[in-house]
Amino acid sequence: MEKNTPSPIQKESIMLTINGTVHRLEVEVWTTLLDLLRERLKLTGTKKGCDQGQCGACTVLLDGQRINSCLTLAVMHDGSEITTIEGLAQNGKLNPVQQAFIDRDAFQCGYCTPGQICSAIGLIQEGKAKTKAEVRELMSGNLCRCGAYTHITEVVLEALERSRT
């Protein structure tokens, strides 16, 4: 078939630092940060659970803050630093939160886990949660259908304890 429509979408050049690596990219403006990570950069550790901001599986750290990467366009983040689940381990050593997820069995299927871990790290940096109830509330933006919440809460409380000492 003869195609008579050129690419329908504008492209823009951006620079992103992802897990410490600088990427210069030409992106279609309709590409979300999540799809850029997963489809273009093959960083599939960041998960797509709903693509609507209703599950938290796509949580990444954008300039240190946890956000839902499905609800932002890649083009909006020229110059930003992004940390995904793939960037948490340092020199092959897991981030303590990652290790604690394993040790406390804070997951089953693992699909929400990268988002939970990024969210937990964001929560710890925010410094707003002190009690168990506050941890539960501030981790509620990450759904887990396997129901690992009890163990997730334990991991976060333990990490908070560690960060205080």
Binding site: G56, R66, I67, N68, L71, G122, L123, E126, G141, N142
Partner: peptide
């Protein structure tokens, strides 16, 4: 309202 992630953005 919403979640911590959404409120950050």
């Amino acid at each position: 309202g919403a979640s911590a992630q959404l409120r950050n953005k």
